[in-house]
Structures are given as C-alpha cells and as structure tokens.
C-alpha cells in the first residue's frame, strides 16, 4: 500500500465531484497507482450503493402530526395563555389539533367577532370543569386523524391563508 501523498488529500473533493478538470485527471491517474485511495473510493461507492438500495421513507403522516402537535404546544405553551384566543391558540392550549377543535365547535364555547371565531379562556376552563374533561379527552384522542386541511402549521403549504388570519388577532 502506498504512503499518503498530497494527491491523497484530494480524495474527499474527488468523491464530492468538486475537483477541477485538471485535478480530476490528476487524481484519476493517481488512483491507478494508489491502492489506499482506490480502496477508499471502492468503500465509499459501496456504502452509497447500499444506502441507495435501502429505500428510506420520510416521516409518516401520523408521526408528522404528533411532532407538529408537540412543537405547537412547545411554541405556544411557554407564553401565558391569552384571555381571548383564536382557533390555533386554543387548539394549542387544549393540546388538540385545530381540525379536531373545528369539528366540535358546536360543543365548545366560542363566540364570533368581526366574522372570526374566538374563545374565552375563562369560559373554556369552566366548560372543562363542567364536562369533567370527557370531551377534551375525545378531542385529544382524535388528533391522529388525517384531516390535513386543518392541521397544517400556519406557514405550511396548506396553511398560508390561515396564517394571515391568525396574525390579525
């Protein structure tokens, strides 16, 4: 096996395809002579090939939803809850999805002002006491439903419209 030369140091750039034409030609010539670099390239290609044969799926819809919910709680949970909240804020405060909340609007104390649905925190607290948390539990359990139209973050690809509205509180 050859000793490491300055040309060997170009290996990573070669693997990245970042070498200029003259450097690439020079390194290719070097490969014919250097067992160590040839082995490095062979292993790198083998690993990349194995990764490519190993189909990786992305985050599943359910997992994505769980993560979004947790992050939403983290984002909003730190701020003291407002007395009057919009749909997003209320959903985060209750630990449910906006979609689940929207589905049960007829059961949850809400009011409308200027065409926008708002929730009074005090009324919600009383409602939770009255209902003994049963409906809230159902709401929280239903958050795994795939009603993506209502469950995107405000800035998500389906949620930009909502973002504009929620920003106007």
């Amino acid at each position: 096996m050859n000793t490491t030369s300055k040309t060997c140091l170009l290996l990573e750039d070669y693997l990245d395809g970042q070498l200029s034409k003259p450097d690439k030609d020079s390194f290719t010539a070097h490969l014919a002579e250097c067992d160590a670099c040839r082995e490095q390239v062979r292993v790198s290609e083998k690993v990349r090939e194995l990764f490519n044969q190993h189909p990786q799926t992305g985050l599943s819809d359910d997992a994505d939803l769980r993560v979004r919910m947790a992050l939403r709680r983290e984002q909003y949970g730190k701020e003291p809850a407002k007395d009057v909240m919009n749909l997003e804020e209320t959903a985060a405060w209750l630990g449910v999805t906006p979609g689940a909340l929207a589905e049960r609007l007829d059961e949850i104390p809400a009011f409308e002002i200027g065409g926008r649905i708002r929730f009074s925190r005090k009324r919600l607290e009383k409602w939770i006491e009255m209902k003994d948390g049963d409906i809230l539990l159902q709401l929280q359990q239903s958050h795994l439903r795939k009603d993506n139209n209502l469950l995107q973050f405000p800035g998500g690809k389906h949620g930009k419209q909502q973002s504009g509205n929620s920003g106007a509180v």
Binding site: L59, V67, G155, G156, K157
Partner: peptide, 18 residues
C-alpha cells in the same frame, strides 16, 4: 416569527428523519 420555524420544519423534517 413562528411561520419561519414552520418553513424550516418543512425543509428538514424528512431529511432529519432519514
């Protein structure tokens, strides 16, 4: 700006999962 976080999440969630 919360929406900025959402965009970062969109960009990196699958990549980080993989």
């Amino acid at each position: 700006t919360m929406a900025a976080f959402d965009m970062l999440y969109e960009r990196y969630r699958h990549r980080l999962f993989r």
